[in-house]
Amino acid sequence: MSFFSIFISTANAAGSPLKQFEIYSIAPMHFGNVNVSFTNSSFWMLLVVLVSTLVLSLGVRRSSLVPNRLQSISELLYEFIANMVRDNASQDGKPYFPFIFTLFIFILFSNVLGLIPYSFTVTSHIIVTFALAMVVFIGVTIIGLVKHRIKFFTLFVPKGIPLALAPLLIIIELISYLVRPITLSVRLFANMMAGHTLLKVFGGFVVALGFLGIGPLVVTVALYGLELIVACLQAYVFAVLTCLYLNDALHLHH
């Protein structure tokens, strides 16, 4: 047996790295024919709402002119997203600021809370990220159609192209537009899943190797730091791309 296969078997002994993504029902519930069971995923979604509300509202509970630390967090987050919306979608994007802020906070807290050992990452499920991406995609498309009516479809015609190339380019533009929710959701989901799987694998090595586990432990700690950055970065990327799609719908320019 090679050294590498010992690694694999010891890692498997600590449980499958995919086990952490399993969804199990805590309280089975049905609404008519629809299964609306309260699962571990639901629990962590509620926790995301609770923790983010707590962090942000504690900051502004007794807001002073000179902010304290907790107040600074909520103000920094606010200004960060406000600037993001203004820079990427101009002043017209302002009405959608609360939605983008909520989206950012939801994803950020899901990602970060998911890094707590033995927790569950809401955004590590493709259906969740895809649903969020679809809300953005459909919302942005409706905004564009309402604002520009039939002119909205000029979004798929790049400016100054030769007439002969137009059909091909229009098809390419259309596909790249329709593929947006998929790329948006897969990016977030894949990042979350890969990071957590990797952490779990190395975590399994630490347990299995005993004294020698110090090596994978160091890697795990380093990976954890990296994952923390990825967690924040992916929330930021999701929000920025939402702003950019919104900008396309609002202004139609390429």
């Binding site: 609404f31 309260f38 699962t39 979604m45 509300t53 609360p98 939801f106 649903a131 969020l132």
Partner: peptide
């Protein structure tokens, strides 16, 4: 698991949106 996840996602997201847009922001 898709349906319960989606139901709870929309529920919690809407609640969070209302809290953010009405109270905190």
């Amino acid at each position: 698991t898709f349906i319960p996840q989606l139901v709870w996602l929309f529920l919690t997201f809407i609640v969070l949106y209302l809290i953010m847009s009405r109270a905190i922001l």
